[in-house]
Amino acid sequence: MSQTISETELTERCKQGERKAFQQLYEQYAGLLMAICVRYAGDRESAQDILHDGFLKIFRSFTQFSYRGEGSLRAWLTRIMVNESLEFLRTKNQLNQTVLMENLPDTIPDSDEYDWEQIPQSQLMRFIEELPIGYRTVFNLYVLEEKSHKEIAGILGITEKTSSSQLYRAKSLLIRKIKDYIKKEQ
């Protein structure tokens, strides 16, 4: 267990349904996948449920995974977790909520260069969590899952235009939050 085995070997052993391999897979990826769940769900408690259900799905359908080179395992795991998260939001009927057009600054504050290193990741994470659900979902899909607006429109059942306007608003909110944060820290 302490010895990290190669991704191919791990894949092979997981396909055999070996319990120890599952455990290693879990230990290796749980944190990363948990971050995805938190990003979408917006709170740790729901995220935990999603992570739980997602992992069960991963373990039970592992035989369907085919290894296609470096990074493909992580991509597959991520996809399952994202789908699980979206499914969760869907069943909670949160995605269909009309997005409130909040009072937003029309112009994006100057997005000066700033040192990303000085903002803790966990802090950025909180900022994402704080986003309204519609913005958050689009932002997650676009920025972190690298989906196009077209793909997002398909996934969420919205128009591309809505998708890009929500991304814009999400970004505006985040930039402001980050600025406020930096100001406070200085």
């Binding site: 319990r19 599952f22 455990q23 879990y26 230990e27 749980a30 944190g31 990363l32 948990m34 971050a35 769940c37 938190v38 740790r44 995220a47 935990q48 992570l51 739980h52 992992f55 069960l56 373990f59 990303w116 903002i119 990741q121 966990s122 950025l124 994470m125 920025v143 972190l144 690298e146 985040l174």
Partner: peptide, 21 residues
């Protein structure tokens, strides 16, 4: 933003593995 957050891990809930197992 993407680069900053790409490999971010959240603390994992305790005992989830035992439960899954």
């Amino acid at each position: 933003f993407r680069n900053r957050m790409k490999d971010y891990s959240e603390p994992v809930p305790e005992q989830l593995w035992e439960q899954l197992n």
